[in-house]
Simulated assay, not measured.
Amino acid sequence: MNLFKQLAKSLYSPKDIASFRFQGIGKTILYVFVLSLAAIVPASIFLGLTISSSITAAQQTIQSDLPSFAIKNGELTADTDKPLEIKDGELFIVLDPTGSFTSKELELKQNAVGILQKEFVLVSNGTAQSIPYNSAGDFSITKDQIVNFADQTGQLKPVIIGAAIVLLYLISSFSKFVEVTILALLGLMIRSMLKKKVNYKQSWVMSAYSVTLATLFLTIMNAVQAAVPSQGLVIWFVHLVMLYLSIKEVPSKKEPAVIV
């Protein structure tokens, strides 16, 4: 509960952030994990909805809209002499036994499933993952088998979504710790410039709270799906301003007395 109180405080008061510098490192690490969790809430919701709708759309499309096909000896054959491209919502499904499509072309579709001549391609948010058929050795499969597999996958949707969200959280947490660590190093430069009594541990703790404002702002923008121009520059500018103002609140170093 105290972590959430500090989360609220750190949104508006550099003086409060400066006072947190004496906090234990363990509590600060826990705070960063909590902040990372809050940051992925909108993305987790959208990811879950995307995965769920994509699996459902793929099931229906493969079963109803695609002709019979088979993958054998590392190559796709199908009852069609031209590529088939089906759009279901935001998802594109491509069946291409001719070799016309490439994974690069599928990336342009943002979200797509490609059953291509030599490989299977899955595209999510413009990033393609390719699996060549011959990488599985002596591999063969038919449309009916894929339909059965899709049905089984549909039953595992909660598990797949849960695993995807856990992976997203781990990536988010790692990124946030790297972000705080880099900011803490910059904090040492600010400390020297302002002649403040701040060691690296204290800089790291203050950095962890200084990233809160920009992180929650970005989370809200993601929730309403609003684009932030020059997002990286804006976020780091806010981080640095918050840390600068926080370090400024720390007492200055005492100059040694001069004996005349």
Rank of each mutant, 00 (worst) to 15 (best):
M1I: 07
L3V: 06
A8R: 04
D16N: 08
I25K: 08
I25H: 04
V41H: 06
P42C: 13
A43K: 14
G48D: 08
S53K: 14
S54G: 15
I55P: 14
A58G: 12
Q59H: 14
T61E: 14
Q63A: 15
L66H: 13
G74I: 09
A78I: 11
A78M: 09
D79C: 02
D79G: 09
K82W: 06
P83V: 10
K87T: 08
K87E: 08
G89I: 03
S103Q: 12
S103V: 07
S103N: 09
L108E: 15
Q110L: 12
A112I: 14
G114I: 13
L116N: 09
S124C: 00
T127C: 00
Q129F: 01
N134R: 05
S140A: 10
I146T: 00
D151S: 08
L156N: 04
L156Q: 03
K157Y: 00
G162V: 03
L170Y: 07
S172Y: 01
S173I: 03
V178G: 00
T181W: 07
L185G: 08
L185I: 13
L185D: 04
K195Y: 07
N199T: 06
Y200K: 05
Y209E: 06
V211F: 14
T212R: 13
I220E: 05
I220L: 07
Q225R: 08
S230W: 04
Y244K: 02
Y244T: 08
L245M: 01
S246N: 03
I247T: 12
V250G: 09
P251Q: 15
V260E: 15
